[in-house]
């Protein structure tokens, strides 16, 4: 029993980071209809920035949580302005290809700049793990696990609130529902897209800060994150922020449970099987956003 609970807790922590990465992916997709395959690269940049701030510059940890979202948000906005804006009229298919190669370009740039296998970043919250007694067994929960789970949830809820209530969120929702209509209502496509990329990039940066201690900073982070975030997003219905959070947690649980009770070599296969099953069985995701009545 204790072991099972520890598997669950471990899975939730991994899932929380997936969820964080997926939220940013969805914000961008919702407002701009672009699936940003370079999102993993942005998460990696966020983690790298955390390394610079915490390890190289030795600044207080909280600064990483404040500065990095802004920084990566700006980077994402620049990508949208310089590369994706000129492609706005291009085939969606071409845009996807462009973001795939953009993502690889980001991780290659990092690899060339930092010729190392992996950079380690210390945990944000230190201290001995907490022990809970359950009959004769011990359940061990680390402070980092709690921090990451709570952090991801908080960020998810904030994202949800922004999207629903803030003016920037309203403009993105309008754009998501009907581009032409939103333009008629006075929203500028360029501005809304830039905002969406900023918010999506900021979330990616934040996901990077949360992921850095448990994943380390390496070029491979980009690919592993984008795959997991995508699976989480598909499970959640690709347009639902709440769905992405649940999707991320489900994915983390499924991976860890199958590794624990089926075979440890099965881990990555499980996420792909999950994606496949959801796409075939419920392409609209397990938690589809109620579609508007736009005809």
């Amino acid at each position: 029993m204790a072991e099972f609970l520890m598997v669950i807790i471990g899975g939730l922590k991994i899932g929380a980071i997936y969820a964080l990465a997926a939220i940013g992916l969805i914000v961008i997709h919702k407002a701009t209809k672009t699936v940003n395959f370079a999102h993993g690269g942005l998460v990696m940049l966020g983690a790298f920035a955390a390394y610079l701030i915490v390890v190289e510059l030795n600044w207080p940890y909280w600064l990483a949580y404040v500065l990095i979202p802004i920084l990566i948000g700006i980077v994402a906005t620049l990508l949208e302005i310089t590369i994706l804006r000129p492609l706005r009229r291009a085939d969606l298919f071409i845009v996807i290809v462009a973001t795939i190669f953009l993502g690889i370009a980001l991780s290659e740039t990092f690899r060339l700049a930092q010729n190392t296998e992996m950079l380690a970043v210390p945990a944000a919250i230190k201290g001995p793990p907490m022990m809970l007694e359950l009959g004769e067994d011990l359940i061990i929960i680390t402070r980092e696990q709690i921090w990451v789970c709570l952090g991801a949830l908080t960020v998810g809820v904030i994202g949800l609130l922004i999207f629903r209530y803030a003016p920037a969120g309203r403009s993105m929702r309008a754009m998501a529902a009907n581009v032409r209509g939103a333009q008629l209502c006075g929203y500028s496509v360029n501005r809304v897209y830039a905002i969406a990329w900023f918010v999506g990039g900021a979330l990616a940066g934040l996901a990077g800060v949360f992921a850095a201690p448990s994943h380390g900073v390496s070029p491979e982070l980009a690919i592993s994150v984008i795959t997991a975030a995508f699976v989480a997003a598909v499970i959640g219905g690709f347009d639902s922020l709440l769905g992405a959070i649940i999707g991320g947690l489900l994915l983390g649980l499924a991976e860890t449970l199958s590794a624990a009770y089926v075979s440890s070599a099965m881990k990555s296969a499980v996420s792909f099987l999950l994606l496949f099953v959801v796409l075939l069985w419920r392409p609209e995701g397990l938690f589809p956003e109620a579609k508007g009545r736009d005809v």
Binding site: G10, G216, A260, S264
Partner: peptide, 10 residues
């Protein structure tokens, strides 16, 4: 474990 694994819970 797979190459690049970061979580070894199981």
């Amino acid at each position: 474990f797979d190459q690049g694994s970061r979580d070894f819970t199981s």
